[in-house]
Design a protein around this nucleic acid. Structure first.
Lengths: 188, 188, 188, 188
DNA sequence: TATGAATGAGTCTTCATTCAT
DNA sequence: CATGAATGAAGACTCATTCAT
């Protein structure tokens, strides 16, 4: 029964979003999922494995969200705007997941290399965007990772602070912020 | 005896940097500080309070580091560069503190408002930089918080990824990154 | 299907010899036997019953081993020597079974009386040896049980310590030990 | 407070004697000792350490019992008889401890060598008895360990079976058994 | 009959917190 | 003020047993 595995995963994710990392005990996950504690261990080797899977799950969701409705044939700027906004909207719609991101991000992954490869794969369109920009000479000659850090990560930073209630952005601000991110990476 | 309180605080911070959040038990803090476990409770209500204080302590250290050797009379660009590099070097010299930052940053602060006020105070010079930039019409007309998020936060993002070993930056890259951050916030 | 019962029994015994008493979980037994966990319960009431049966099984094997190639018509001394050596060799060839013996031997048997009767039956030739010795006036006038305890049990003791690596016996030592056991029970 | 450590040790031993190895959970030990579960861990690293200590404790008690009122200057035969009877009486008076001996005896000791050395030390008088016997040419020329196995261990075997109710010995039987053990090891 | 997913009580162990000294 | 022994409620994980299929 594949469903139960999924059920556990979702329950764990929900708890993580709600109570943060502290609130993630196997017992609570079991309760949330409506299964016995022992049942979890039929589907996951141990807590670490469960968390690892959650990370992958979320990463996948994030990737899907960011790359939603992105057409690789669209102009670079259009794609950039879309992704930026996708991040923004995802951050707002899944506020808790997003805010807690820090907590499991810092956790040591058992296989960092495999993770990075996976990342490259599921964020292929993001990658493509920057490769295209570099090839077309639009972007500053920096590595893709750095360019991402300078532009889209800013979106993430702002979204987090926004979610934490540090400040609010008008639509105009939002547009300006996108333009600013764009300014950061293009040649002038 | 004010010293003992400070002693505990420093011991806790040290443990946090060394063993991460996981390894922070009151007993270990007590051992590290050379006091009895119960003694901690004379100076801090509970573990949460201790952690809260650690956060503040670190925030103070970060502020000091960022604003080191900054002269408010220097040109904006000069100050910006200095701060950017200060962040970068701090991230490298206190790598563990920096990487673990994520872990306690996400913890819910009991009094967010007070925190924000404090932040404004201890990061006064950072604030001043952006206010000056806005007044002189150099920066895009956005709030200080947003401008910070678009520029200096990028430094933090890059530094973190750098510390995690995701990539390395040459000196040229570093300069380009600073320019990029600058490009993000200035008018074009 | 009588075979499946036997299959489970043998698998359990094997695990016991390999992993000791600690490693004997019903799940492992099931895996080893290639049946489902639930299936075990068709043939055995519970774990205790399974273990009880294992004990009997092993006892039977021990009896067979000890009485191997024993001819009730041979002289007493010859039979005694053979049995002593049979014990010794069995202990060496089935070292693990032998060493773990302690662990389940101590477990409370539900029906001690039945066990004793069974013992008398399957160790009939051992019994016969001592009865013959007593009748012929060779042995000291003590009960069979005591005589066994004074002579053959010594073989078991020595074999165990030998298996545990406490000491090693040369062939000469072995012969001397047999003679010593013999000296213990004969009249002088 | 040395008492509490001892209290826990004794409680654990008692449980071991009463319920066997199965009944030895840390929680039960705590209950029996009237302390909190966590308290045990102030005095013992983990369950294994506790058990190890129990083993040593019992071994010490056994040694003390066996060598009680033994005068190394007494004739060999006298000492032998005394020890034999000491074993016998100890087995009867501490029946449960004795019967469960098997269970922890089989447990793997973390440091077997140290254990054997200790054994040699605390059973010094037993050792001395056999050394004297060998030197005086009374005993068969075998190693001490083997001689012990052939004589005093028989006492242990008989005592165990006696305790288990397999048979009973009259005083005459007892004397005969002692003589038989003696016969096993002396030259004829 | 056989299966094996599910159960949940029980295991060892940790640790924030208290309180008598 | 300081101590540190004691607490006991969680924590992660195991495993004998059941039961719907």
């Amino acid at each position: 029964m594949k469903e139960k595995r999924q059920l556990i995963l979702e329950s764990a994710e929900k708890l993580l979003a709600t109570d943060g990392f502290h609130g993630l005990s196997m017992q609570k996950v079991a309760n949330q999922a409506g299964v016995a504690a022992g049942t979890i261990y039929r589907y996951f080797d141990d807590k670490e494995a469960l968390i690892e899977e959650i990370k992958l799950n979320i990463m996948q969701r994030v990737a899907t969200a960011i790359q939603k409705d992105i057409d690789d044939n669209d102009p670079i700027k259009v794609r950039f705007r879309s992704m930026w906004l996708n991040i923004w909207h995802f951050a707002i719609s899944e506020k808790n997941t997003f805010l807690n991101r820090n907590q499991y991000e810092a956790l040591p992954s058992s296989n960092l290399i495999k993770l990075k490869e996976l990342e490259k794969k599921i964020f292929a369109q993001v990658n493509q965007l920057f490769i295209d920009g570099l090839e077309q000479g639009v972007f500053k000659p920096l590595s893709v990772e750095i360019l991402v850090g300078l532009s889209l990560e800013a979106s993430v930073c702002l979204a987090r602070k926004h979610s934490q209630g540090f400040f609010t952005l008008t639509d105009d601000d939002l547009n300006s912020a996108i333009e600013a991110s764009w300014d950061a990476i293009i040649k002038h």
